[in-house]
């Protein structure tokens, strides 16, 4: 187990280097001069330009620039934008918001998704089963900006049940609730159908038949014996989904004006702010890799047949 974790952590190093290099190269390739517009209407003075280029290593070739960046990264320095703003500080401000939104969305999709999956799984072919099947199909086929926009208009503007947009830089759970529902709705569909399919399959399994033959109650045979096995793939899905949500939700964040990392990266790309893009994406890559590792470890705990050594 210990060596497995160590090996996985070591494997992350080349992945992080590769991912950051790709991002770095792509940002490098973007057209535009960072000095453009820096000094107002006039072009910058040659002395200032030279100093600026020196400070941000703009005269070096790509590989040298990247090498210097990674050197700083290894010391935990994500760099500074051309406006002298620390990328790390910006992320510290926005990451808690994204994490809160992601947790809320995961909570919603887990509770509603599993409940719907169990209820439809034990009454396969019933009214509720068909209702959930149709509604999940609808949710899956509608793009998120439509769902987000509709939810905002009807639940926020028309009915006033939820705040229309987020107005603070540190939003409350209530302010994030509607965006989280929108964000989780797609995954609710996946979680409920994944739970249902696995439960239906496991209800037919030999060990559930054994559980009934052991004289266990229906509730125990399904709730403990069948469900425990059915949830293994569901937990895996939720784990990966959490990793993805921690990368920020650009569309949902922009609809509801949420100051999270998704919007931050989007704005940074639009304003050609390469340092911010690379810094933020690097953090996202690391978070995603760590969440992946945790999911794999949890998988081993849930299914004793999986060993990590």
């Amino acid at each position: 187990m210990g060596t497995y974790v160590l090996r996985r952590l070591l494997q992350m190093i080349p992945v992080i280097l590769g991912a950051t290099f790709l991002i770095f190269a792509m940002v490098f390739a973007l057209p535009g001069d960072p000095l453009a517009g820096k000094c107002g209407e006039r072009p910058c003075s040659p002395a200032y330009a030279a100093q600026f280029r020196e400070k941000y290593n703009l005269n070096d070739p790509l590989l040298v620039q990247y090498g210097k960046y990674v050197g700083k990264l290894a010391q935990g320095d994500l760099g500074q934008t051309y406006n002298n703003i620390s990328v790390a500080d910006q992320l510290k401000l926005r990451y808690p918001v994204t994490a809160k939104l992601a947790l809320l969305a995961i909570l919603i999709e887990t509770v509603i998704g599993i409940a719907a999956g169990v209820l439809t799984g034990i009454r396969k072919g019933g009214f509720l089963d068909n209702l959930v099947l149709v509604s999940t199909l609808i949710v899956i086929s509608i793009p998120i900006f439509v769902i987000g926009g509709l939810a905002q208009y009807f639940l926020g503007v028309k009915l006033g049940l939820f705040p229309v947009t987020v107005t603070s830089s540190d939003p409350t759970v209530y302010q994030l609730l509607l965006p989280a529902i929108v964000l989780g709705s797609l995954s609710v569909a996946y979680v409920s159908r994944l739970t249902r399919t696995n439960l239906v399959e496991n209800l037919r399994s030999d060990y559930v038949r054994t559980a009934v033959a052991k004289g266990l109650t229906q509730r125990r045979a399904i709730g403990i014996h069948a469900l425990r096995n059915s949830l293994i793939p569901v937990v895996t899905f939720i784990g990966f989904d959490f990793g993805a949500l921690l990368g920020g939700a650009i569309v949902t964040e922009s609809i509801f004006n949420i100051p999270g990392v998704g919007g931050y990266i989007f704005r940074s790309i639009r304003s050609r702010d390469g340092v911010s893009v690379v810094g933020a994406v690097t953090v996202l890559v690391i978070v995603y890799l760590v969440v992946n590792l945790l999911v794999d470890l949890i998988y081993g705990l849930l299914d004793p047949r999986i060993t990590h050594d």
Partner: peptide, 24 residues
Amino acid sequence: RRKTRGPEVSMIFQDALSSLNPVF
């Protein structure tokens, strides 16, 4: 009837690997 399964009438199945729950 449920309460008879186990204390009164009990059963052994053919394939013990699939008849035992793999995760307990």
